[in-house]
Design a protein around this nucleic acid. Structure first.
Lengths: 155, 155
DNA sequence: CTAGAACTTGAAGTTAACTTTAAGTCAAGG
DNA sequence: CCTTGACTTAAAGTTAACTTCAAGTTCTAG
C-alpha cells in the first residue's frame, strides 16, 4: 500500500503542506517518487514519520532531526552517534519534566490561592495569610514566587 | 528597594529588552516610573514577574497572560474568572505531562534500540527482532511507532 | 557641570516552522 | 480525449516572541 502526500497527511493528522515542507528541509529523503514526480509514501515510512513527530515533541529543531535522519541513512557506522543523541535527549526530557512539575506546583498553588480568595471574597485572604496558615505543600512555592530565582528564601 | 529594568532583568536572568517588550505588550502595568520616565520595579513586582514566567512555561501566550493581569488589576470581582483560568491551565498541564511521558517512552525505546544495535553491530538486530523478544515494556510503543496514530495496533 | 553608562521610544530586523499563493503538471473516471 | 481534483515547485506571507537599532534623555559620580 502506498499513499500520496495528502493521504499520508490525513493518516497522521497533519497538513500536507507540512509534509512537503519537511521533505524540502531534508527530513524525508526516504520517500520515493512516481515517474511523474509524485511522492509515494510506503507503509514503512509511517515509522519514520512517527519518530520525527516524537522528536519534534521532544523540542528538537528541524535541523537536529535532519542530522539524525542523515545519520540513520548512513547505516550502521553511526549507531554510536545515534545512541548518544537519544541519550542526550533523555536528559533533556528529564529536565523538561522537572520544569513541568514545577510549573504545575505553581498552578496548583494559584488554584488554592483563588479558592481561598473566593471563599473569603477577597484576595487579601490568601495574599496576607501568615505562612503558618498556608497549607504546608504550598509554602515552598509561595516563598519562591515572592523572591528572585536563586535567592535563598530560607535565612 | 527599587530596581531599574537592567537590574531586574539581571535578577531574573532575562534580557532587559524582554522586560521592555512585556511592558509594551501590557504585561507590566503595575510598574511605576520615576519623574524622568524610568521604570522603577519594586520588590513586590518580583512575584508578578515570577507568575508571568510560570505562565509562559505553561505555554500561555503573551495575550493570554495580559488578560490575566488585566483581571487581577480589576480586583476581587474577577476572582472566579481567575480561578477558572488556572483550573483550565491545570488540565492543559496534565495533558502536556501525559504527552511528555509518551515522548519519553519513545526515547527510552530508541535508546534500547540503539543499545541492542550497538551490541550486535547492526540495526537489523532490534529492527527485525520478533516482538516476543523485545523487552515487554517496549512492545506497546514499538507497535505504536509502526502504525498511524488512531490505528488499532491489536487485531 | 559634565562625562558616560544606562535609560527611553518607535521602528525595523530576526528566527523557526509553517502556510499560502501562483502557475503549472499528473492521473483516474466518464 | 477531457475534465477535475490532487499533485508539483518556488517564492512570498504569517505568527509569536523577541532582539537590535537609532536617536535622544536621565541619572550618577567625579
Amino acid at each position: 500500500m502506498v499513499y500520496t502526500v495528502g493521504e499520508m497527511a490525513k493518516l497522521l493528522g497533519v497538513a500536507a503542506s507540512t509534509l512537503r515542507y519537511y521533505d524540502k528541509e531534508g527530513l524525508l529523503p526516504f520517500v520515493e517518487r512516481s515517474s511523474g514526480g509524485i511522492r509515494m509514501f510506503r507503509e514503512s515510512d509511517i515509522e519514520w514519520l512517527q519518530v520525527i513527530g516524537c522528536m519534534k515533541k521532544a523540542g528538537m529543531s528541524i535541523k537536529d532531526i535532519r542530522q539524525y535522519i542523515e545519520m540513520a541513512l548512513q547505516g550502521d557506522d553511526t549507531i554510536d552517534l545515534r545512541l548518544a543523541m537519544f541519550r542526550r535527549q533523555q536528559e533533556v526530557l528529564k529536565q523538561q519534566m522537572a520544569e513541568l512539575q514545577h510549573t504545575m506546583e505553581m498552578v496548583d498553588y494559584k488554584c488554592w490561592y483563588y479558592e481561598t480568595a473566593k471563599e473569603a471574597g477577597t484576595v487579601d485572604a490568601p495574599q496576607k495569610m501568615e505562612l503558618a496558615e498556608v497549607p504546608e505543600r504550598f509554602r515552598k512555592i509561595r516563598q519562591e514566587l515572592r523572591t528572585a530565582p536563586g535567592t535563598a528564601a530560607t535565612m
